[in-house]
Simulated assay, not measured.
Amino acid sequence: MTVLDTRVRPFAAREPRTRHYVMCAPDHFAVEYSINPWMNPDVPVDTTLARQQWDDLRATYQRLGHRVDVIDPAPGQPDMVFAANGGLVVGDRAYGARFTYPERAAEAGVFATWLRTQGLIVTDPSHTNEGEGDFLALGSMILAGTGFRTSIAAHIEAAAALDRPVVSLELVDPRFYHLDTALAVLDDGNGDAASNVAYYPGAFSPHSRRALRDLFPEAIIATEADAAVLGLNAVSDGQHVVLPSQAHQLAEQLDQRGYLPVPIDLSEFLKSGGSVKCCTMERHR
């Protein structure tokens, strides 16, 4: 069980905001194929431990005061536990997913159907995209990854569907095949604090690194070692940052900036190239 840090900092505390998350139970989670550099079907998943780790993540969100909805997994979809990939929700609108690989294609319809049952207006995509894997919403914009799993055309389509400007960022390192493996939103700008992020520069093309420097001059720059354990696959409520427990230096950097790091072990999911954020879709304002 994760122990929350309640130490008093010598500087003004950051303010959390209650969030609304969507998760998918890992009933069918396994590594049955290889569609990213992390996946090796010859390395077995401890399904009992994976369930314990997922339960710990959900319980952590609930202890922090957040709402967590759980969608039922579809048989034969071992990666559906990575709910972030199922779409992007902003307000009462959602932009659905259209997966790159046929192994995950069936997930898109399951997520879109569920989102409609929640009363959301869902745009079915014409272009390849993998939801919040490559779309990270801030109050004033959407950061959108491309290079491996999501097309530039999907960026344009998402901007129209959600009526929010999109900033395109090019990923160049196959280890960081989704934007949410290389960049974490720490403050979305919807509260009193300015929007801010943490990211690993080596995952991005030179022009995208320039864009990130210009947009987020106060960003936390993660080390390659922390990025390599998917430390940036994190979820923040503006104060608490839930992140993989193996990302030790990133946790220290967050602490120094006034955030409260909440380390959690999701090592079984790392075998499939996922961690905290991959398991978490957010219903954004």
Results as ranks from 00 to 15, higher is better:
Gly273Thr: 12
Thr146Lys: 13
Arg175Ala: 14
Ile156Gln: 15
Leu266Thr: 09
Asn196Lys: 11
Tyr101Arg: 14
Ser236Leu: 04
Ala161Met: 00
Asn85Leu: 07
Val166Thr: 01
Thr223Asn: 05
Ala203Val: 05
Gly65Tyr: 04
Arg58Asn: 07
Asp163Lys: 15
Ala158Thr: 12
Pro217Tyr: 00
Met141Gly: 01
Arg63Tyr: 11
Leu115Asn: 06
Ala108His: 04
Ala59Gly: 01
Asp226Leu: 02
Arg67Asn: 11
Gly231Cys: 03
Phe29Trp: 09
Tyr200Gly: 04
Ala234Thr: 05
Ala184Ile: 00
Glu218Cys: 07
Ser205Arg: 00
Ser126Trp: 08
Val43Cys: 15
Asn40Ile: 04
Gln118Ile: 09
Ile121Glu: 14
His284Arg: 14
Thr113Ser: 14
Arg257Pro: 02
Glu282Thr: 14
Arg7Trp: 01
Val235Leu: 03
Gly119Trp: 02
Val8Gly: 01
Pro206Asn: 10
Ala159His: 04
Asp163Ala: 15
Asp79Ile: 07
Ala25Thr: 14
His28Pro: 02
Thr47Phe: 03
Ala30Arg: 14
Arg67Leu: 13
Trp54Lys: 02
Asp56Cys: 10
Arg51Cys: 09
Pro75Ser: 14
Leu186Ile: 05
Gly189Gln: 09
Asp46Leu: 01
Pro37Ile: 06
Phe111Trp: 08
Phe204Ser: 05
Arg67Ile: 10
Leu115Trp: 11
Gln249Met: 13
Leu250Val: 08
Asp163Asn: 15
Leu230Ile: 07
Thr223Gln: 09
Ala84Asp: 06
Val122Tyr: 08
Cys279Asp: 07
Thr280Pro: 00
Val185Ala: 05
Val235Thr: 03
Leu120Met: 00
Lys271Asn: 01
Met23Ser: 11
Thr146Arg: 15
Arg67His: 13
Gly189Trp: 09
Ile264Ser: 06
Arg58Phe: 02
Gly147Asn: 03
Val68Ser: 04
Phe204Glu: 03
Pro165Asn: 10
Tyr177Trp: 11
Leu186Phe: 05
Asn129Met: 12
Gln253Asp: 12
Leu183Arg: 11
Arg7Phe: 08
Gly139Val: 11
Ala84Thr: 03
Val81His: 01
Ser205Phe: 03
Leu250Phe: 08
Leu260Phe: 13
Glu252Leu: 13
Gly139His: 15
Ala13Thr: 03
Glu170Arg: 08
Glu224Met: 06
Glu15Gln: 15
Val197Trp: 12
Glu282Cys: 09
Asp27Tyr: 12
Gly109Tyr: 07
Pro75Asp: 13
Asn196His: 12
Pro244Glu: 12
Glu15Asn: 15
Val242Met: 00
Gly202Ser: 03
Glu268Gly: 01
Val68Leu: 05
Glu107Lys: 10
Arg149Leu: 00
Val22Glu: 00
Gly131Glu: 04
Glu170Cys: 01
Leu250Asn: 03
Val81Pro: 05
Ala94Val: 09
Gly238His: 06
Thr6Trp: 12
His248Val: 15
Asp265Lys: 04
Met39Ser: 02
Ala247Pro: 02
Glu218Ile: 09
Asp42Ile: 10
Leu138Arg: 08
Thr2Asn: 11
Ala219Arg: 08
Thr117Phe: 09
Trp54Arg: 04
Gly76Val: 07
Val235Asn: 12
Met281Asn: 04
Leu57Thr: 02
Leu136Ile: 06
Ser168Thr: 15
Leu115Thr: 05
Asn85Cys: 08
Pro10Gly: 10
Thr47Glu: 11
Leu169Tyr: 07
Pro125Asp: 00
Arg51Val: 09
Gly109Trp: 08
Ala247Ser: 02
Ala182Pro: 01
Ile221Gln: 06
Ala97Met: 12
Ser208Glu: 06
